[in-house]
Simulated scan of single mutants.
Amino acid sequence: MPEAKRPDLAAMVAPLGRILMQAELPVLERNGLTMWGYSVLLGLGDEPVYTQAALAKKIHADKTRIIGVLDELQQRGLILRDPDPADRRARLISLTPAGRTVRDRTQREIQEQEDQLLSQLPTADRKAFLRSLQRLSEAVADQPG
């Protein structure tokens, strides 16, 4: 008996991604962030500092593409950019306490919305879905390009 066909991954993930991004936009606007600004704040995580190049690589952005985003976040007091003592041409980027507050509040609000969507799944399915999505995300992050 032939195996039942399933939709392609992109056919399933793309509409979900669009819905999630549409739901995030009001949260980002309320917190004064763009999608790239939020990506930078998330990318900084809890590490003390990143070089601009390392941060760009981590969030899959061209390092020149995020300069304007970094300028805006720095002007708002959400990040610091200091010269790298080991390489004066490089800048070390770190979150300020205000940046951590904005990042954490934004992430909490976004994840509250995500939880509403995920609540449509039984608990075991939700945990398996999130675990699998995390593994796929990590596998893709390790691939070049």
Score class of each variant (00 low, 15 high):
residue 86 A to V: 03
residue 66 I to A: 04
residue 68 G to Y: 08
residue 55 L to Y: 03
residue 88 R to L: 07
residue 67 I to H: 07
residue 55 L to V: 02
residue 97 P to F: 07
residue 65 R to H: 13
residue 99 G to T: 11
residue 78 L to A: 10
residue 85 P to R: 04
residue 92 L to C: 04
residue 69 V to G: 04
residue 62 D to P: 12
residue 97 P to W: 05
residue 87 D to F: 02
residue 91 R to H: 10
residue 86 A to K: 11
residue 87 D to Q: 04
residue 100 R to G: 11
residue 92 L to R: 12
residue 75 Q to V: 07
residue 85 P to V: 05
residue 87 D to W: 01
residue 66 I to R: 06
residue 57 K to N: 13
residue 90 A to Y: 03
residue 59 I to L: 08
residue 76 R to H: 09
residue 64 T to C: 06
residue 81 R to K: 12
residue 85 P to K: 03
residue 73 L to C: 08
residue 72 E to Y: 12
residue 89 R to W: 03
residue 70 L to H: 13
residue 72 E to W: 09
residue 83 P to R: 13
residue 80 L to S: 15
residue 96 T to E: 08
residue 58 K to D: 09
residue 88 R to D: 03
residue 64 T to E: 10
residue 93 I to E: 10
residue 76 R to I: 02
residue 83 P to T: 08
residue 81 R to D: 01
residue 70 L to R: 14
residue 98 A to D: 05
residue 71 D to N: 15
residue 84 D to R: 06
residue 79 I to K: 05
residue 83 P to M: 06
residue 89 R to S: 13
residue 97 P to V: 12
residue 99 G to P: 10
residue 66 I to Y: 02
residue 72 E to A: 15
residue 80 L to D: 15
residue 86 A to N: 13
residue 90 A to H: 11
residue 90 A to L: 04
residue 52 Q to K: 14
residue 92 L to N: 11
residue 96 T to G: 09
